[in-house]
Design a protein around this nucleic acid. Structure first.
Length: 497
RNA sequence: GCCAAGGUGGCAGAGUCCGGCCGAACGCAGCGGCCUGCAGAGCCGCCCACCGCCGGUUCAAAUCCGGCCCUUGGCUCCA
């Protein structure tokens, strides 16, 4: 089966065919950089990263662009707060660096470009001018609005009729619009003080903050870009008029992505994106995880607590387009699943190093299991990036390895090599890395643990089990897992992530 | 109110597009056995699901069709 993806535009799972058979143009609707990223963001990032990796696995060159929205009321509101920065640019820079660092910690492939709105204001203005010239937008009191009635297909992504779209918003602003559903492409003047006040954190002194208000010169006077236009301008600048894949959070379908389609397609008369994929949200009990609800876990805390591999196992434990439950239990379960994978991997590597590994031994059950797992994995990923199913394929390799090793006797050298290689290769698609880097200190720690285990072995030989158990307990208190086997004790250091 | 997604074992979560290999995957929890000084890890096996409810189509439905109930998300801050 070839790759199939669920397209929000049609609501159906469709065969994936990029415009150019060798290249994929991928745009991910990135963050507004006004808060530290949380696990909900990480969930989307990791799924997009897995899509990217899988497309490369299939042989495509992926041109992957991910924007940062650095013009926003919330950013203005953060100016002067703590040590975030003394103006909007500095605040945005702080959070962009924070975000990129979180992304590295999650082992995400880098995008080709991370464009920022503030660097694309001329393109935004060009696009708005085109829309006015073509009769899709109008100027009103120095602001420019998109006339939704001029775009016949408005509502096609979120599947809504224009008259059913409720509109709220500022009554003053609304009076400037021809239709309440019209949205701003360009907003006159600086940021509204009330809007800024609304996003301020309580009880924070903003000292001698000097927000600039983030305004630019334009044909319609001082102003700033509206919320949706930046993604159109940036994706067109870096990837052209028609994207192959546009990804974002489910919460962005309306109005953000709907408006992106309207303004882009009105401007170019070309289809804006062929496949719209949407990542579902984390559920914290009864509601979604979100910055505004304040019920989130930040990415850096989660990385500190769980490490990259556990987190990635957790974040890909459901389909990208299914809601996923966040709880201590579900994340602990992911940890156990990763541990099982890693232990099997280590057992295989150890068996390969042992003198009992023979090239003439042939365990068909092991080899077949590995072959089957590969087939399953590929089918799962091709079926709309089914990462959970892909994980179970990996786990079935673990079971096959354990079963083979547990039988003792002689080991199938080639079979184990194949198992290890397959785990590494397919694990990499999910961004999992086995047998983590051995650092100098880890090696030293290992030597010390060996010494302690030698002493413990002597105590055991002497029948002094109480002392032996004490030593084991103390090692375990340090996070070092001890296991007694026929060939002596083995250990696992806490993962050095 | 309108739009979208979903309701599968104790938990979590695939499978639903393309009906039969689903007598329902993988993992966790639980139970039994093996291994072990003990523990852990591991192995082998088992338990737990009339797949939200009602009706229909079919030789055959978790999967298709209709109705109903419930949950989540969106309806201009949102990944």
């Amino acid at each position: 089966m070839t790759l199939h993806v669920t397209n929000t535009l049609t609501g159906e799972k469709e065969p994936f065919e990029p415009q150019d058979p060798e290249n994929v143009l991928l745009y991910y609707c990135g963050l507004t950089v006004s808060d530290p990223p949380h696990l909900g963001h990480a969930r989307s990032w990791v799924h997009v990263d897995v899509m990217h990796r899988w497309l490369e696995y299939l042989g495509y060159d992926v041109r992957h662009v991910e924007n940062f929205t650095d013009i926003n009321e919330k950013i203005v509101a953060r100016v002067g707060e703590d040590d975030l920065g003394e103006d909007e640019e500095a605040v945005a820079k702080t959070y962009i660096e924070h975000t990129l660092s979180d992304m590295r910690a999650l082992n995400l492939l880098r995008a080709e470009v991370y464009p920022r709105v503030s660097e694309h204001v001329p393109e935004v203005i060009d696009l708005v001018e085109t829309l006015i010239e073509n009769g899709y937008a109008y100027e009103s009191n120095g602001s420019v609005y998109f006339d939704v009635t001029s775009f016949e297909e408005y509502g096609k992504l979120s599947n809504q009729e224009l008259e059913e779209i409720e509109t709220q918003g500022d009554p003053d602003e609304r009076s400037e619009k021809r239709n309440p559903a019209d949205f701003a492409l360009w907003k006159a003047g600086g940021v509204d003080e009330d809007a800024v006040a609304e996003h301020r954190h309580e009880g924070v002194d903003h000292g001698c903050a000097t927000p600039t208000g983030q305004t630019w010169e334009s044909p319609w006077g001082q102003g700033r870009p509206g919320w949706h236009i930046e993604c159109s301008a940036m994706s067109m600048t870096h990837l052209g008029e028609t994207l192959d894949i546009h990804v974002g959070g489910r919460d962005l379908v309306f109005p953000h992505h709907e408006n992106e389609i309207a303004q882009s397609e009105a401007a170019t008369d070309q289809r804006f994106a062929n496949y719209w994929l949407h990542c579902e949200l984390f559920q914290m009990g009864e509601e979604k995880m979100s910055s505004s609800l304040g019920n989130f876990v930040t990415v850096d805390d989660a990385v500190d607590q769980w490490g990259t591999n556990v987190l990635r196992t957790f974040l890909t434990a459901g389909s990208y387009n299914s809601q996923q439950l966040y709880s201590d239990e579900t994340i602990t379960e992911a940890e156990e699943r990763w541990d099982r994978l890693e232990r099997a991997y280590e057992a295989a590597v150890e068996a390969l190093d042992s003198p009992d590994a023979r090239t003439k031994v042939d365990d068909e059950a092991l080899r077949d299991a590995v072959d089957d797992a590969r087939t399953l994995f590929i089918e799962a990923m091709n079926d709309d990036f089914n990462t959970r199913e892909a994980q179970s394929a990996l786990l079935s390799i673990a079971t096959a390895i354990n079963s083979h090793v547990d039988a003792r006797g002689e080991y199938d050298y080639r079979g184990l090599r194949q198992a290890v290689g397959t785990l590494e290769e397919l694990g990499a698609v999910l961004g999992l890395s086995f047998g983590g880097e051995t650092t100098g200190t880890a090696e030293l720690a290992g030597d010390v643990v060996d010494l302690v285990l030698d002493v413990r072995e002597q105590e055991r030989d002497a029948g002094n089990y109480e002392r032996a158990d004490e030593l084991r307990d103390e090692l375990e208190g340090l996070g070092i897992e001890v296991q007694d086997t026929d060939d002596g004790a083995t250990y696992r250091l806490p993962s050095a992530e």
